[in-house]
Simulated scan of single mutants.
Amino acid sequence: MARLAAFDMDGTLLLPNHHLGEVTLRTLKRLREERQIILAFATGRHVLEMRHVLGTLDLDAFLITGNGTRIHSMEGELLHRQDLAPAAAEKVILGRWDTQASMHVFNDTGWLTQHEIPELLHAHVYSGFKYRLTDLKSLPKNEVTKICFCGDHDDLSRLKIQLGEALGDSAFLCFSALDCLEVLPVGCNKGSALGILSQHLGLTMKDCMAFGDAMNDREMLSSVGHGLIMGNAMAQLKADLPHLPVIGHCSNQAVSHYLTHWLDTPNLTYSPE
C-alpha cells in the first residue's frame, strides 16, 4: 500500500494547456481524504510558482522543485536545498557554446534570462510566473540553483555532449523535456530528493508511488515501489524503464484515470483509457 504519491507536473499531472483538470484535482483530494496518502509535487518548476499553484488549489502537498534542488514542507518550511557548484555555474554561464538554444538561470529570486522569449511564458499561463531580463554574466555564481537551455532537441543533444565534456562530474545533465536541457547539481534529481523526503517522513521509497513523463523523472520512477510512465512520455524514458507500466495520455487526465481504478477496483487489471 502506497503511503506517499509523487507527481511530475508538465506532461503528467497537467493538461497540455498547463492547467490542472477538475477531475484530477478531485482525485487528488480523494487520495488525501479517503486513504490519507501524503502528496508531493515533484517538478522542475520554481517553488515561487508552485506555492502560487497550491494556493489556488486548496491542496496540501510537499514540494520538490527545481528538479530536486529544493524540498519544502506543506507549511512552507525549507527541508533541503542544493545549488550548482560555483565553478560549474561560472563555466556554463561564461562559456562559449556552439548552440542556438537560449540560456536560463534559476536561483531563489526566480527565473533569469537575457532576451525576451514570449513563447516560453505559455507554459506558465496558469500561474503567471515570468522571467526577469538580466545580464547573466553578472549574476553571483554561488547562488545558482540550476541552468536550463531551451531550443531544438537535436541542437540540445549536441550541446549536452559539449557540456558533458566541459563539466565532467561537476554537474548533472538531463532533459526535462525534448526542448529543455538542464544543468543540475551533482547527485541532484527528483529521485534523490524524494528519498530525502521519504526519510524525513519515516518512510522508505518502497512506500512511494510516482508518475512522470521525461528523463528528469527517471531516477524517481526507477527507485519507488510503484512507478508509472505516461503514455505521452519521452521515448527514451520508456526505453530505459521497460519494466514499468505505461498509462494513458496527460490530455485525458490519465493520472486521475489510473488512481480512480487504484482506489475503487484495485483487484481488477488496469487498462489505460
Rank of each mutant, 00 (worst) to 15 (best):
D217P: 11
D179T: 11
A87E: 15
T109P: 01
I147P: 05
E273A: 13
L159Q: 06
D207M: 02
G202M: 14
R45S: 09
A166F: 05
L244A: 10
L156Q: 02
Q100F: 05
I37Y: 00
L57V: 12
H80D: 06
L163R: 03
T260W: 02
S102I: 06
D154T: 14
L178A: 10
E22G: 08
L121K: 05
I161C: 06
D8C: 07
T56A: 15
A85P: 01
G66F: 02
E219L: 00
A42V: 01
T99M: 07
H124R: 11
K29T: 05
D155C: 01
T43Q: 02
L181H: 05
K206C: 02
L163N: 09
K130W: 00
I196S: 02
R32N: 04
G164T: 06
K91M: 14
Q100R: 13
C188A: 13
T43Y: 04
L228D: 05
R132H: 12
R70E: 13
V186K: 15
P266I: 10
E273V: 14
I93L: 10
L79H: 04
A233N: 03
T69P: 03
D213I: 12
E77T: 14
L28A: 11
L57D: 09
T65V: 05
E90A: 15
L163C: 09
D213K: 08
H72M: 06
L181S: 05
L48C: 02
L201F: 03
V144S: 09
E182G: 05
P86K: 10
A214F: 04
L139Y: 06
D213A: 15
C148V: 09
R30Y: 08
F211W: 07
A42T: 04
R35I: 00
A239Y: 00
M230C: 09
I229N: 09
S102V: 12
H124W: 10
A5Q: 12
K206I: 00
H115L: 02
L173C: 00
W111P: 08
S251V: 00
R3C: 06
R158V: 00
A177S: 14
G227P: 10
T99P: 11
R51Q: 15
D58E: 15
Q253N: 06
M209Y: 05
L203R: 01
M74P: 07
S157P: 07
S157Q: 15
I161R: 09
C174N: 12
A235T: 13
A88N: 11
L39D: 15
L84H: 02
C148K: 04
M74G: 11
Q36Y: 05
A87Q: 15
G128R: 13
G95P: 06
D108Y: 05
C208I: 11
N232G: 13
L136Q: 13
L54M: 12
H18E: 01
L268I: 14
L263I: 14
E219P: 00
E75I: 02
H249Q: 12
A42E: 02
I247H: 01
F175W: 07
S256E: 09
L194S: 11
M234A: 08
I229E: 07
Q36G: 12
R81H: 12
L259A: 10
A61T: 10
C150N: 07
A210T: 08
G164D: 04
A6N: 10
H226I: 04
Q236I: 03
T134A: 14
E165G: 09
I64M: 02
G76H: 06
I38Y: 00
L201T: 03
C250R: 00
A2G: 06
L237W: 02
L259G: 14
I161H: 14
I71G: 13
T43W: 04
C148H: 10
F129V: 01
